[in-house]
Structure formats: C-alpha cells, structure tokens
Nucleic acid binder design. Structure first.
Length: 716
RNA sequence: GGGCGGUUAGCUCAGUUGGUAGAGCGACUGAUUUACACUCAGUAGGCCGCGGGUUCAAGUCCUGCACCGCCCACCA
C-alpha cells in the first residue's frame, strides 16, 4: 500500500456528523459488545447492568452522564481483556407510567381508566411503552454506548415477569411477605398506596388551629380529621397535667356534641410543643396508629379512599375534606372552641413523588415485606433482611463510593419499616396470590377454576430489586448468571440509593445468598449552569441529542466526565460541551499530521525514540490507575492534557524540524515514536471519545485489530 | 431537630500523603496561513467564606462560626 499520503477521508476539519453514524454501524456489525464474540478475553468477567431507564419518555442529561461513565468503564475493561458485558434494559416504572398514560388519555379523550377498563388501559400503556422504548434505545446508541443489545431485558417481558412471580412466591413461602392491616400512604388521586421512599415532603403554609378540647388546648392543621378523636394524650411528667390520671375519662363538648374522652399518658409526647397535650386520630396518622396499637384503642376511619368524610362526621358526612375544613372551623368557632389561629404555620405535606396527589394515611389491608423478621438464607443461616443489608456493606463485600454514602445507607436501614409492596394500579406485575373462599394460595401458575387472583400489582422497585440477576436468566441456573453475577459495578445516581441499590442488596441476599455487585459508584445529578435542576417548567433542559448534533457525542461525553468528581452534582453549560468538540478536532489533526509523514508505515519499533514512548506509557499508567480508582474525571483530564499540551504542542512541534532534516535515522526513529505515541493516545482516549478514536483507527495503515474497540490497552 | 456536602481567578471546577496557588471557559495583547482559526504564544485576574489553634510551614490537619445546597425525622 502507499502510506505516503493521508487517506482522503482525512478532510479537514473533523466532521462528527459524518463519522459517528459510520462508527455506530461498524460496531454494531462486529458484535463485539457481546462478550461471547470478543477476540481476546483472557482475564475473567467484568459486568455492569445498566440502570434501566423508565419507559416514560426520553433520555435526559442524567442518563447521558450515566451512559458515558459506564461506557468508559466498559470500554476500558474490554480493551484490557476482560470478558466484558454491559447489559441494557428498560423499566416499566409502574405508577409513573400509568399516571402519565392516564393523564394523556384524560387530556385528549376526557376518559378515566374506569371508562376504558383494565384490558384496554393496559393495551394503551403497552402501545406507549413500545414507542418509548424504541426512542430510548435509539438515543442510547447515539451516545456511543457499547451495550450488548442481544441481551436486552424489559421488566415486563416474559422472562422477567416470571422471575418476579418466582421471587414473590419464595419470599411468601419463607414468611417474608405477609398481608396485613396497617397504616399506609394512600394517594387519593391515583387511588393507590405508595412506599415510604416515594413520598416527597413539600413545605406549605397553612392555618394552624388551637382548639378547646375540654380543659385542654390542642393544635392541628387538620380539623376535618378530628371527629373521632376520643383520646387526649400527654407526657406523664408534664406538671401542667399532673392532676389528670392515665385512663381517666372526662366529658367534653366537641364538634358534633358532647363526647367522652380518655386520658393517656405517654412518654412519646413532646412537652415543649404547643400545650403539650394532643388528641389522636389513629386511622389517618402513622404515629397515632402506633399509639392506638400500643394501647389497644379502636381505629375508626373518618375519611374514605377518595377523601370524603364518613358517617362519623355527622352533619359533614359526604363532604370532601378540602371543602369541609372551612365549614368545620366555622362550626367550631360558633361553639367557641377555637382558641386561636396561627395563619402562617409552615409545615411539610406528604405528596406522591410519582405524579400523584397529597398523601392521606389510611389503614388498609396490603402486602408487606418484613424487614425485621429472621428467616433462613441460602447459606443456611438465620438473619433479617435488615441485618443482611447492613452486614454486606460493613464487611466490605460491597463498597459504596463515595464513601460518605455508606453512612447515609446505614441511617436509612436503621429507620426502615416493613415495605408495602402492593399497589392498586393495573400496570405492573400482578401479585401471584389466589383466593377461593377462605383459602389463600401463592403460586406462579394459575391454580385453576374457582380461584380468583389478587387484583393488586407490585411496587415497581420489587422487580427492580431482582434486576442484576433476573436479566441474567434467574431463576434458571444459566451460564450468564454463573459468569456475570455478582456484577462488578453498579453505577447510578445517588438519588436512587434507597429505592434501588438497597432493594437489590435485599433481594439478591435472600434469593441468591449473594451480593448483587461488588462496587457501587454513585454519580451526581446534572444541573444547569446555575445549579438548578433541569426541568420543563424552568425551560433549562439541555437535550443530549441536541448536544450530539451540535458538538458530537464525544464532546457531550467528555463534558459530563471532566470536572465531575464522584457523587458531586455537575453543572453543565453549552460552552463546556463546545470546548470538547475542539479537542476531538485536535485529535483528528494530530492523527493527520502523524499519518501524513512518509515513513510512518514502514519503521520498525526497535528504531523508535524510546524516551518519548516511555513518557506516553507513564501517562497510560496514570490513566489506568485513575480509572481503576473510579476517578474518571482525573483520568480524562490527564490524557486530555498530555495529548494537547505535551504531544501536540511540544512533541509534534519539535518533530517538524527532525522530520524535515537530513538525518535518516533520526527521521525514522522519530516517526516511529510519533506513530507509537499516537496509538497509545488513541487507545487511552477511546473509552472517553470512542467515535473520533475509532474513526482515526480505521485510517491506520496497519492495525493490530480491526477495531480500536477491541485493541489491547497499553500494557501498564 | 439530626446528618451530609459545598464555600479557591469574572464563570465552572482541580488541588492526591501539609512544602512558592492550577486548569478549562471568558477577557485582553499579539503571531502565523499552518497537521489543526475548532490554531499558537503571551497578559491580566486569588485575604483559598470568617475567627481561633497545631506546625519550621496550613487551601490542605483540629476547632468554633456564617452562608448556600441536599438528605433524613411521627413534633400533633
């Protein structure tokens, strides 16, 4: 071949829009993302399961950051010779998805899910999710993500659905899953329960009412729940109430007339708050519910599922709580029971973060996972889920990075209560429990005629908890499961540490007796240049696809990596992305310069200028060490500066004279060194900037491998 | 109320085990028609949030405080 001219493809400047789609096609054709096809995988397995994006929409910069980070880890390990698997998927995100589709349908057709019926709604949701999946896959590919699409999984596909059923039944049989009447977070808008973790507290200003309750003054923001309050509770050491005794009954005038109230003394009461006396509403407050259980009090609902007052409300029966409050306050005022009103009371209101409404605690029969019950694990030992979750991190079997999140994780575990897993929505994994008269049966298969299945579905995080192994074929004993589990790293945003990371540890502990991953790497949230969350309403969303079109995927990736320390939020602006576009062009032109030199394709390695190559190898070592320590920001920064400031600005500049000189030996030695350094730089850059490095690689006169994607990482 | 993180150049951030303050972007001055104007050389710009302490030496370690942000918690 004729190496003296740079191939025609090296038009200037670098044109990512033309090159990137070609590289994508090249990678896809090769099949190298599937570890079974790797030419040199001699180092054991390296696996990451992609946190599956929700099928509710499109990718945002947070996804892009996740894809960039994981792809760097994956490409690096693949080049180092590990049998590398990066497994893609999608999450059904039950509540969020159903809420979105229901809202869309209502906007367009003014129909609710009850108008459509269960089957029709599920059909509509399926239509939506299929479309959504296709969009997301397309976007994911454009980022250059070297995922093994042949192993793509969806939480609702047959295999994963089966795994969820199996997991439920095993946990049920072990006594870990039980049904009980307990106070849960009820969302009157979506008509379903939600878990403690899905609640978002929103600060809000409401009037705070001080009411006369017999001889006591009690405070409340919610007079409409007070109809059934027959107990007044105070601290036993509170001197103000020393003359009252525990269990003493008093007569008093209340909203709908005279009632008998019972005095309870409990040390849980905060004497310094308000008057130090409070009444309790067991059916609509988690704390009060616990007190009621402690003292064996009756629990009478005041509000129904839709927020309507029940019979106990007397003349207010049938009113919606929103409207009732003012009328009830007026009634109380007429009776002279309102002592005073604080109009500027700030407090937290619980809302459903998955697009729902204001949470109303309700007592309901639901399914729960017991976190404090000691059960037999696969290793034969008895322990609770909580104990397992704590011990695997404490012992170092799972390492969480940055380390500070370990403390947060422990704190969460310590406060953890039984996990309510049943949801009253239709989209999701249906609970595999069947009823026939008084009989109950939990089984994967339909037990036959006469049995009726529980209508509820499972919390979306139940299926997510199985993700590292359900995607690898569990409950079957597959080769994939054996090879790739536990996975090497779980990489995700710190905002789902509890939702997901903790649940995966829980699930794989009980079902497999193993950890789901050895390392947890948490990245920060991507924010706008002012540090605000990106949101539609603020109009500050930077769309990954737009950035790719304007500046290239390589630039988008680098902008999310450099300067992003683990666990720290990333402030992203367009300027940042633009800067890295220039760098991609720099790489392109360095290659052009080196490859244009006539002797480049012919020289022998033995003749090269070793000192310069050693310098590049030292950089390779530094980059490798940084990646091994999950400091991708440092790794990227190191190679960036070596390539631009040292290799391009100094080495190439001083080489110009040598390459034009008369000394043939010096020429070929230098040319060999430049070529060698170029190869090292391309390889070091490849995990960070896969497109431009692959595009250059394709122009090399001689290649050690057909794609840089499977080239060997510099031996360090 | 408890916990965590942040505070370093105009902006965004590095700064590993203490040893003369760094990068990118932006600003300004200039150069070259070049591998690359998506270039190069250079300049300006810092009480390293504030106060105390340890040390020969502190952006870095300890200790108070302030402000910003986040997470958790049943304060009715």
């Amino acid at each position: 071949m004729e190496p003296s001219k740079a191939p025609e493809i090296f038009l200037k400047p670098y044109d990512p829009a033309a090159q990137e789609p070609k590289m994508l096609e090249l990678w896809e054709r090769s099949g190298y993302t599937n570890p079974d096809n790797l030419p040199h995988a001699d180092k054991g397995a390296y696996s990451i399961v992609l946190p599956p994006p929700n099928v509710t929409g499109t990718l945002h910069m947070g996804h892009a950051a996740m894809l960039a980070i994981e792809d760097i880890l994956i490409r690096y390990h693949r080049m180092r010779g590990y049998k590398t698997l990066w497994l893609p998927g999608a999450d059904s995100a039950a509540i969020a998805t159903q809420a979105k589709v229901e809202t869309d349908i209502y906007k367009k057709e003014k129909k609710t899910r009850h108008d459509l019926g269960r089957d029709e709604l599920l059909r509509r949701i399926s239509e939506f999710t299929e479309e959504s999946k296709a969009t997301i896959i397309n976007q994911t590919k454009k980022m250059g993500s070297s995922l093994d699409w042949s192993r793509y999984a969806y939480t609702m596909d047959e295999k994963r659905y089966g795994a969820v059923m199996e997991a439920f039944v095993r946990m049920y049989d072990a006594g870990l899953i039980y049904r009980g009447d307990r106070i849960v977070n009820w969302d009157p808008k979506l008509q379903t329960t939600v878990s403690d973790d899905e609640i978002e507290y929103v600060e809000q200003k409401d009037p705070f009412y001080y009411l006369q309750y017999g001889p006591f003054t009690i405070g409340t923001v919610r007079p409409e729940t007070k109809f059934g309050d027959k107990w007044v509770i105070m601290h036993p050491a509170d001197e103000r109430y020393a003359r009252y005794e525990h269990g003493q009954q008093i007569r008093l005038e209340w909203i709908n007339g005279p009632i008998t109230a019972t005095i309870i003394k409990d040390e849980g009461v905060d004497m310094s708050f308000g008057s130090g006396a409070m009444t309790i509403t067991p059916a609509h407050d988690a704390h009060d519910f616990e007190l009621a259980q402690k003292y064996g009090l009756e629990i009478t609902p005041v509000i129904d599922d839709r927020g309507i007052l029940l019979d106990i409300a007397g003349e207010f029966r049938g009113w919606h709580i929103k409207k009732a409050r003012a009328a009830i306050v007026e009634e109380l005022q007429k009776k002279g029971l309102v002592v005073k009103v604080d109009e500027n009371y700030m407090h937290n209101v619980a809302t459903n973060s998955r697009g729902g409404g204001i949470i109303e605690p309700q007592v309901k029969r639901q399914w729960f996972v017991a976190v404090n019950k000691s059960v037999r694990f696969p290793d034969g030992k008895m322990r609770t889920l909580k104990e397992w979750m704590r011990s695997v991190v404490e012992s170092g079997r799972i390492k969480i990075m940055p380390e500070r999140f370990e403390k947060i994780y422990y704190h969460w575990i310590d406060n953890l209560r039984d996990w309510c897993i049943s949801r009253q929505i239709w989209f999701g994994h249906r609970i595999p429990v069947w009823y026939k008269g008084d009989e109950t049966k939990a089984c994967v298969e339909d037990p036959g005629a006469g049995w009726e299945q529980d209508p509820d579905t499972l919390d979306t995080w139940f299926s997510s908890g199985l993700w590292t192994f359900s995607t690898l074929g569990w409950p079957d004993k597959t080769k994939d499961l054996e090879s790739y589990h536990p996975t090497s790293v779980l990489e995700t945003g710190y905002d789902i540490l509890f939702f997901w990371v903790a649940r995966m540890i829980l699930m794989s502990g009980f079902l497999l007796g193993d950890v789901p991953f050895k390392n947890v790497y948490l990245h920060g949230l991507v924010r706008d240049a002012q540090g605000r969350k990106m949101s539609k309403s603020l109009g500050n969303i930077i769309d990954p696809l737009t950035m790719i079109e304007k500046y290239s995927a390589d630039a988008a990736r680098l902008s999310l990596i450099v300067g992003a320390a683990p666990g720290n939020d990333i402030k992203l602006s367009e300027d940042r992305v633009r800067g890295y576009k220039h760098f991609a062009n720099k790489v392109w032109n360095i290659a052009r310069f080196v490859l244009e030199h006539p002797e480049v394709g012919e020289v022998k390695l033995a003749q090269r200028d070793n000192e310069l190559v050693e310098e590049a190898m030292a950089v390779a070592k530094e980059v490798s060490d940084n990646i091994d320590n999950f400091r991708l920001d440092h790794a990227a920064d190191t190679v960036y500066h070596f390539v631009w400031d040292r290799f391009a600005a100094e080495v190439l500049e001083e080489s110009k004279a040598i390459l034009k000189g008369d000394d043939a030996a010096a020429r070929s030695s230098r040319a060999a060194a430049l070529y060698e350094i170029l190869l090292i730089c391309l390889k070091l850059l490849h995990p960070f900037m896969p497109f431009v490095t692959e595009a250059v690689w394709q122009q090399l006169p001689k290649k050690e491998s057909d794609q840089i994607m499977v080239a060997r990482w510099p031996a360090v």
